[in-house]
């Protein structure tokens, strides 16, 4: 018996020692860089949301814990953030939502005005849509996209997608990117699924008048 144990350690001591050493190495690296990684995520959100809500100077979560909101029949924790302007007044709201696109998930940063009635637009946090077609949802208004500006000022509620229409008119009708109906629809569907439940939850919690 003791021979077996001895043999076991003879064969595997290197593996065990190096596992411990490597584990320590990783723990140190992770501890050193973790705050920076978390800050990057927050920065990216603030950059996108701040670009949409220009009056907001900073964003803070409405509650310590993310709100549990029922979306599409599932309880999903959503970290809704309040955008505050220089004088501490609410300038708008922003949150991250997720839906399925054409090839992969799409994750959007959505910003709405202080009364939660009109959208201030959306930005793409993550997408993997077809280059040249679906990835046109990523083109910001500043870069000359025609799809994203349609959401700036669009009413919070049910948006519909059309293939023909005037993209310059701001209403609940969103004109699709030609050749990328699925991606265009994915954004609309995601927004429809998330915006209203979040609004109701904020009202129910007394955060929104």
């Amino acid at each position: 018996m003791s021979n077996k144990i001895k043999f076991f350690f003879q064969e595997s001591w290197l593996l065990m020692v190096s596992s411990v050493v490597f584990g320590l190495l990783l723990a140190i690296t992770d501890a050193a860089w973790k705050p920076r990684i978390e800050q990057n995520t927050i920065d990216r959100f603030n950059r996108l949301a701040g670009g949409l809500l220009t009056e907001a100077e900073r964003f803070e979560s409405v509650a310590a814990e993310p709100l549990a909101i029922e979306i599409g029949g599932k309880e999903i924790p959503v970290d809704v953030k309040r955008g505050l302007d220089g004088s501490g007044q609410t300038a708008g709201w922003a949150f991250v939502c997720e839906g399925s696109g054409f090839a992969d998930k799409i994750r959007l940063v959505v910003a709405v005005d202080a009364a939660f009635e009109k959208m201030a637009g959306f930005g793409v946090l993550f997408s993997n849509e077809t280059p040249g077609f679906g990835d046109k949802i990523n083109i910001t208004p500043a870069a000359g996209g025609f799809y994203q500006p349609q959401f700036i000022g669009a009413p919070v509620g049910t948006l519909t997608l059309t293939k023909s229409g005037d993209a310059a008119v701001i209403d609940a009708e969103i004109v699709a990117i030609s050749g990328a109906t699925v991606s265009s629809q994915a954004v609309v569907t995601t927004l429809n699924a998330w915006m209203v439940p979040i609004k109701e939850k904020l009202k129910a919690e007394g955060l929104l008048k």
């Binding site: 593996l15 190096s18 190495l25 990783l26 690296t29 860089w33 990057n40 995520t41 990216r44």
Partner: peptide, 20 residues
């Protein structure tokens, strides 16, 4: 595999932290 995985994880963390 153990060695490679360790260094890959370090590289991954580095990119996440400095080149997000």
């Amino acid at each position: 595999t153990l060695t490679i995985a360790t260094f890959v994880t370090i590289a991954d963390l580095y990119l996440k932290a400095f080149l997000p």
